[in-house]
């Protein structure tokens, strides 16, 4: 069995970000990067499936410039077997990512793909769905539980949907995405990091894949959220109630 997972390099969500004055993006000087936390959950799930037996190979894919290799290496340090680095310096949108992953899928022919439900930097939540569409395979997104069938040809996936949980069955090949509650990813241990040093990462220039890398989404402008206006103090409860009724119109 072969499982394809993704590892996107994203800005550290715990850091404060600043929008550039001209609105063309965020200030990246001194910024820390890490693996998209949802991708970490996807990698963890693939590793758990592998560790249950059956001898699965876990292949981790990343798209980006030279620096993105570190996040692929992080996936290998967690325990993935092999890496694929699609070298791509330009910015990509979900559609381009889906097309690139489709090409990787065609060469690798994994049993299934599992990736984060979305990346915490742009929060698009589209790449997996577009990938399933491009490949013409079933999708099971926002998984909070994944159970493989005995013959490993399909999976029963519990999805987090509005108002509750939905359980569906998908036959492989398929595209799955990991939601927050699927598992708690492991920390990369030092022995894991040392082993990862010896694992192979294949570098593939994006140009060699024959993918139209022009983004479909046009980036217009980035702005900081408006600063909150100062509140007002009211003299007594009747005034408060009156304001809530007449101005805020909430009661």
């Amino acid at each position: 069995m072969k499982i394809l997972v993704t590892s996107k390099r994203v800005t550290d969500p715990d850091m404060k970000i600043k929008v550039k004055a001209d609105g063309t993006g965020i200030v990246t000087d001194g910024m820390n990067y890490k693996v998209n936390p949802f991708d970490e959950i996807a990698i963890e799930e693939a590793l758990r499936i592998k560790e249950k037996g059956g001898g699965a190979e876990v292949v981790v894919v990343g798209i980006g410039g030279k620096d993105a290799a570190l996040e692929i290496r992080s996936g290998l340090a967690m325990g993935a077997d092999r890496g694929i680095h699609v070298l791509c310096e330009q910015a990509v949108d979900s559609s381009v990512v889906a097309q690139i992953l489709a090409k990787v899928y065609e060469t690798e022919k994994p049993d299934f793909v599992i990736m984060g439900k979305q990346a915490v930097d742009d929060d698009s939540n589209q790449a997996a769905q577009m990938l399933a569409g491009a490949l013409g395979v079933p999708q099971a997104c926002f998984a909070s539980k994944v159970e493989l069938a005995g013959d490993a040809k399909s999976a029963r996936v519990t999805r987090e949907v509005d108002g509750g949980l939905e359980t569906i069955e998908v036959t492989f090949p398929a595209v799955l995405t990991a939601d927050l509650r699927l598992n708690e990813p492991r920390y990369a241990s030092l022995p894991g990091i040392m082993k990862a040093k010896k694992k192979k990462i294949d570098e593939i220039p994006v140009a060699s894949l024959g993918v139209d890398t022009n983004p479909r989404v046009k980036f217009v402008k980035m702005t900081e959220p408006p600063t909150r206006k100062a509140g007002v103090k009211v003299a007594d409860v009747p005034t408060l109630v009156q304001k809530l009724k007449e101005e805020a119109k909430v009661i």
Partner: peptide, 12 residues
């Protein structure tokens, strides 16, 4: 790169 990864992982 291993030391960078180590620092990040031990910090987490």
């Amino acid at each position: 790169p291993e030391q960078e990864m180590l620092r990040k992982s031990i910090r987490e």
